[in-house]
């Protein structure tokens, strides 16, 4: 924002859009697309799918702006829509691949370990980004979601509870379990001498 420009909050923009100034929705997308894309990418692991999911989330939120209650922020609301969309897509994908799941797992495991072997030369303090994806992909999607909300998006527990529609205690417990699982996944790769 340049000097002299007035900052308008998300809530004010939403109110103006409801009064008919639809073009202002572009500003909301400009503010939040990077975070939403990042969330979708973390969950779907495919840039093109992530982009589509982000677009669907923004379109859905635009169409249901009337239902948006201002007891939470627009940011957490759009995160909730995007996360739900991604979870739907993952479930759909899982159902499609159900028949060939064993074969897929076999291929993926072999591929991972070949990559681990080939990345032994990487400095111990660094992890190649593909490997990060491998570690993340070992985690259940619910863990990935809560870790991204906390570690990447920087949401506090209150905001996470709004996105996941659960209690604060549940956020704490889920986050602890996700971190433990993440540590386990990392240890798995550590044993291969990669990290």
């Amino acid at each position: 924002m340049g000097p002299g420009e007035i900052f308008i909050t998300d809530a004010e923009i939403v109110r103006k859009i409801r009064r008919g100034r639809s073009a202002l929705y572009a500003e909301l997308m400009r503010r939040h697309y990077p975070k939403i894309f990042c969330l979708c990418l973390s969950l779907l692991k495919d840039p093109s799918m992530a982009d589509d999911a982000a677009q669907e989330a923004f379109l859905k939120s635009y169409r249901s702006l009337d239902k948006f209650r201002e007891d939470s922020s627009f940011l957490t609301w759009i995160h909730r829509i995007a996360a739900n969309r991604c979870l739907d897509l993952i479930r759909l994908k899982a159902r499609e691949k159900e028949n060939s799941l064993d074969t897929m797992l076999e291929i993926s495991e072999n591929h991972s370990f070949r990559e681990v072997e080939s990345s032994l030369l990487i400095e111990s303090s660094l992890i190649n980004s593909d490997l990060v994806e491998k570690i993340m992909s070992r985690l259940p999607v619910e863990y990935r979601l809560i870790l991204v909300l906390r570690e990447v998006q920087g949401f506090n527990y209150q905001e996470i509870s709004q996105v996941l529609e659960c209690s604060l205690d549940s956020v704490k417990a889920r986050l602890r379990r996700a971190r433990l699982a993440c540590g386990e996944a990392l240890r798995h790769f550590k044993m291969a001498g990669c990290v």
Binding site: R30, P34, L59, V132, V148, V152, C182
Partner: peptide, 22 residues
């Protein structure tokens, strides 16, 4: 290690997305 470098989206990518969605 896992989360620091995640999630960079350029200004151009954002603008393209906004135009497409609008």
């Amino acid at each position: 290690v896992l989360f620091q470098s995640r999630g960079f989206v350029s200004h151009q990518e954002t603008e393209k997305f906004v135009a497409r969605t609008m």
